[in-house]
């Protein structure tokens, strides 16, 4: 069976990271299995972890009264999610729910953020990597916002 450090080593997110940092992060990680329907994170609850999905699908959702949970985006094998632990007030802004059985590595963000305060090199490395993920999600969200497949959208400039 692979150790936590091996698992992290294999993941592109941690590629090129200092061995000692990686060992420290591995020490903050544990394997978790979520059943379909389980909430992995809930809006407005403390965000002390982030997750690396080993297998399964996670839905990022927002609950709307009178409607239900709107799925904003799904995340899949090898995706990393959860960055609310990085910034005050360390609360989740959306729900994350397992769509099917999800095997994930849960990493202790609380422990990491304390470590990052003292080990700024590690903090910078982690932030850099999270910034990349946040950018990708933002780009995807912007594309979704454009609703490019919709019908009958009048042009902004209809021409003369």
């Amino acid at each position: 069976m692979k150790s936590m450090a091996d698992l992290l080593h294999e993941h592109p997110f941690f590629k090129g990271m200092d061995e000692s940092h990686l060992d420290f992060i591995a020490g903050c990680g544990e394997n978790h299995i979520y059943n379909a329907g389980d909430y992995i994170a809930r809006e407005n609850e403390p965000a002390d972890h982030f997750y690396l999905i080993r297998a399964g699908q996670v839905a990022v959702e927002c609950f709307v009264p009178n409607y239900g949970a709107i799925c904003l985006q799904t995340l899949h094998d090898n995706d990393i999610f959860g960055w609310s632990w990085l910034f005050p007030p360390y609360m989740w802004t959306f729900d994350a729910r397992a769509v099917d059985e999800v095997h994930a590595i849960r990493l202790d963000g609380k422990c990491l953020r304390e470590k990052c305060e003292t080990d700024t090199a590690m903090g910078a490395e982690l932030l850099k990597r999270f910034a990349r993920i946040v950018t990708q999600r933002l780009q995807a969200t912007r594309m979704q916002l454009m609703d490019i497949y919709s019908q009958q959208r009048p042009p902004l400039d209809p021409g003369q």
């Binding site: 799925c71 799904t74 899949h76 094998d77 090898n78 990708q136 995807a140 594309m143 979704q144 609703d147």
Partner: peptide
């Protein structure tokens, strides 16, 4: 398959097509 907006029956991907392409 991926959709921009899911519904209550949709168990598949929600998001844009570049995401599965990237991974």
């Amino acid at each position: 398959l991926t959709v921009d907006q899911g519904d209550s029956t949709w168990r598949g991907r929600v998001g844009v097509i570049t995401q599965p392409l990237e991974t």
